[in-house]
Amino acid sequence: MRPLRSLLAGAIAPALLAMTFLASPAMAQDEGPLPHEYWSFESLFGTFDQAALQRGFQVYLNVCSNCHSMQYLHYRDLTGIGLTEDQIKGVAASITVPSGLDDQGNPKDGPATPASQFKSPFANEAAARAANNGAAPPDLSLIVNAREGGPNYVYGILTGFAQAPAGFKVGEGLFYNKMFPGHQIHMPQPLQDGTVTYTDGTNSDLDQEAHDVVTFLSWAANPEMVERKQIGVRVILFLVFMTGITYAVKRKLWSDVHH
């Protein structure tokens, strides 16, 4: 058994080694250091803080949604941040979205329903580009998954606006950001202390707002996460149990074999 075990370990160790290397690719050279914030959802069994999700949605609705779409989300999905169906109907009804054609065949607008996609601020990418100094604001549905560093990176961008250091020339229509690769970003600082007034009375300093909206965006990118982890625990416990049982059966069956 001993040589076998060391052999197996020898075969698996390089594979795992290769993976750890892959899991931590080097950041591009001119980015700022990645912050390491605490996120309730990052640990193995971590879940989303529902209050933070709802505050984060408020930040998105009041601030981000003026420029950024979230086209893969529907208002019905908001049950995932703890809104009731009536609340969702209320949120949707207050938003005007394109709703098909009228009797003359002209496009018409109407109130959103829970089945509607999140409203996009611009009709198309060219319009978004034209309205934003040539850089279309990226869709935020998957932004946390789509950036190296995930939630910490997005948090770093939101809190990374600063005065450019002496000697650093910031281009026309650009803003200095410590986190952004190259330090020049098209987005003006979106969040400041007190940008939103939380309906739940939470103090809205920049750090709080950034935390909340990043929590919301992390949920938006992985809405299945909580259910996934819950099922995962049960599946893995079952499989470990089954491994033990089959191993016991194997031991019993093989006990009469001389080796």
């Binding site: 993976m19 899991a23 998954n145 789509a146 982890k229």
Partner: peptide, 15 residues
């Protein structure tokens, strides 16, 4: 699948 589904993936493929 349940705990590290995107560990082996590339963030760029979410764009």
């Amino acid at each position: 699948v349940f705990f590290f589904p995107n560990l082996l993936g590339d963030p760029n493929n979410f764009i």
